[in-house]
């Protein structure tokens, strides 16, 4: 899956949770208070189901989840790792 495809899917998911549809790809979702505390786990579940990945202990890094770009890179990287395994 290309990064653009990943980003589109992530954007479609995140857009459900926020008022502003045109949120910049690098905007910090959590710092800007755009999402509530349940969103964090909903996002994890979404990533796991949609991209068939497991998000675990080692992945708990704010840098992996903070923006649309960060999430896209995180999934791209995980995807790559699972392919090369």
């Amino acid at each position: 899956m290309t990064n653009d495809e990943i980003k589109e899917r992530i954007k479609a998911f995140i857009c459900q949770f926020i008022q502003n549809v045109d949120i910049p790809d690098d905007e910090d979702l959590f710092a800007s208070g755009l999402v509530n505390s349940l969103f964090a786990m909903q996002l994890v579940l979404h990533i796991e189901k949609e991209f068939q990945l497991k998000v675990a202990n080692d992945d708990l890094d704010y840098e992996n989840f903070k923006s649309i770009n960060a999430i896209t890179d995180f999934i791209g990287q995980k995807d790559l790792n699972s392919e090369t395994k």
């Binding site: 505390s37 349940l38 964090a40 786990m41 994890v44 202990n57 708990l60 890094d61 704010y62």
Partner: peptide, 17 residues
């Protein structure tokens, strides 16, 4: 359990769910 900063949003929320 988990990482610092994720204790509520991720760990506690899994437990509460």
């Amino acid at each position: 359990v988990g990482r610092p900063g994720f204790g509520f949003s991720h760990v506690t929320n899994v437990a509460l769910d």
